[in-house]
Every structure is written in C-alpha cells, then in structure tokens.
C-alpha cells in the first residue's frame, strides 16, 4: 500500500482532482474538448518544466529559464522586424539560447560554482539583453501569419500546442530514459564524484543539460509569441516558479526523489487542471494560488509519510 502511494500517489491525486472537477462541473470541465484544451493550456509551462527536469537530473537548478522565455519571444520579433524569415529567425533564437545554456553549464561544472548563483547571474544578463533589444517595450507587429500558426489552431484534431508538448516530452523522455546520455546525466545527479571516477565527463554532460533547458525555454518564448501575437520583455516571468513546482510535484511521482519526464508532465497537468477547474467554477484567482500551493505541500508530505511507513 505504501509502495503504491509512493509510486502512483501523485498520479492518483491528478485523477482524483479531475474526477472531482468533472462531478462539480460535468458540462464545462468534464467535456472532452475542455480536457483536450487543458493539454494546450499546460504546454508552455510543461515545456519549461521539462527543461528544468533535465537540469535537475544532473542535480542542478536553472534559474535563468524565465529570462530565456522572455528573451526568446523578444528576439524572434526583433528578427522579424529586421526582415529575417521566420524559420531562420527561430533557429537563430534557439542557437542564441544554446549559447547561454552552454555558458551556464560550463561555469557550473568547470568552476564548480553553485548553479543557483551562476544561472541567476546569466539570467540577469539575459534580462538586460532582452530589455536592450526591445528598449523595454512590448513588441507587436511584423509577425508573419504562418509563424503565428505554430502556436494556435489545431492539427489532426489536437491543438497545435499539444503536438509540441507531445514532441518535446517524447524527445526528453528518450534523452533521459532511453539513450546513453541520460544514464550519464542521472549518474552525475545521483553521485557526481562516483560518476566522475567511473569515467563520466562532468563538464560536457552538464553543459548538455543546461543547453537543453535553455533551448526549451527559448522554444517556449517563440511559441508564446506565436500564441499571443506579441512579445513582452517580462512575458516569461511567471514560468520559473510554476515550472519548478511542476518538477517537484513530478519528483514525488513514479521515482524516488528523482526528476523525471512523466512525473513532470503529471505535475504540470495538476497545476493546469487546478487553474482550469477553479476558473470554470468561478473561484477567485487568489484562492487558486492558495490551493495550488497547498496541493504541492500535501503531495510532498504524503510521499514522506509513505516513505516512513515503508
């Protein structure tokens, strides 16, 4: 029983929340189209959280994610403004983010700087660059319609954004759980010194994790811009804490205290479902935050109880 709570407790919590909302609001919340819509609403948060998951796998934190989301959105519109075609602009944004990720990863692994500090510094630099690019203003206009389509509409019956989530989650899951590099990342996160002595190269692997996180954050910046049709230099500010909340919720699911992609998806889904359900029920926004925070605490405490019982 305790083993079950530990492995699937968080997933069960998600299911219970969904059932409870469906009973409270069968027409609006429980409708299949709303449930599909939730997958779209959770996409941006979930992708940032998946990036955070990869960094957490090597036992580090990336506090620059929110800045990179804002940066990605602003830079892509900036490039449109100077006439760069959409595909090239997007690739350039991802490449720029990769450079920032590489810098963070290098500083953290080569000089053993605490990742909190290093990524806070890099994030601050990126924030400055973002504001400088847009002179502090929201960028609007010059956004090609075909670019906007990557963040809106539907494809094969599912929202386009949901497809992005499926794609990113599948890739991240393969990277972390299926291919060699994932074993190395988790080995570093599990025991850095043991991994190093067994021949795992710390610097390139850590850099890889930070690059993945940065690129995914920039992708979210691009998708966010496509979705809302404008870019704001603080537009990504809300993602950092929610993303880590999703990862921490996910760490209580499936595996013992390890960041993992399926868990993060469950975590992001819990946050999205609560937001969606409570808004439909007409619960005040302030109360929503209180409830979300309480659920995170409860998930962690239930897991601890499960652990002690075992």
């Amino acid at each position: 029983m305790t083993g079950f709570v530990r492995r699937f407790g968080t997933l069960a919590a998600l299911v219970i929340i969904i059932i409870a909302f469906s009973i409270a609001s069968p027409g609006a919340f429980g409708s299949p189209s709303n449930l599909i819509n939730i997958t779209q609403q959770m996409t941006l948060l979930a992708i940032v959280a998946i990036g955070a998951t990869v960094v957490m796998a090597v036992g580090e934190f990336d506090l620059s994610t929110a800045s990179i989301v804002s940066f990605g959105g602003i830079l892509v519109v900036f490039l449109f403004k100077v006439g760069v075609p959409a595909p090239i602009a997007c690739l350039a944004v991802l490449a720029a983010a990769a450079v920032f990720g590489a810098v963070s990863g290098f500083v953290v692994s080569r000089f053993e700087v605490l990742s909190f500090i290093a990524t806070l510094a890099v994030g601050t630099i990126i924030g400055g660059i973002t504001f400088w690019l847009c002179e502090g203003a929201t960028l609007f206009g010059n956004i090609p319609a075909e670019f906007r389509d990557i963040g809106r509409g539907t494809m094969l019956g599912l929202p386009t954004l949901t497809w992005w989530l499926i794609g990113v989650a599948a890739c991240a899951w393969i990277i972390l759980d299926k291919v060699e590099i994932g074993r190395r990342l988790y080995a570093i996160g599990g025991n850095r010194e043991a991994a190093r002595l067994a021949g795992v190269r710390i610097v390139p692997n850590t850099m890889f994790a930070f690059i993945v996180s940065a690129v995914l954050s920039a992708l979210v910046g691009i998708l966010l811009t496509a979705r809302i049709g404008s870019a704001n230099p603080t537009g990504g500010g809300g993602y950092l804490l929610s993303a880590y909340a999703a990862v921490f919720l996910g760490m209580t699911a499936f595996r013992e205290g390890e960041a993992n992609v399926p868990g993060t998806l469950v975590g992001a889904a819990i946050i999205a479902v609560i937001g969606n359900g409570l808004t439909i029920l007409g619960v005040s926004t302030f109360l929503q935050d209180i409830i979300t925070g309480t659920i995170i605490l409860a998930a962690v405490l239930v897991r601890r109880a499960g652990k002690q019982g075992a």
Partner: peptide, 15 residues
C-alpha cells in the same frame, strides 16, 4: 565515490 545509490544495480554496472 563508488555507487550511484539512486540508480539501479544494472546501471551502476554499466555506467
């Protein structure tokens, strides 16, 4: 310095 205790035996052998 030896074991990665959060990973499985098989992975510890393969790393």
């Amino acid at each position: 310095e030896g074991l990665i205790v959060s990973r499985t035996i098989a992975e510890n052998l393969a790393i």
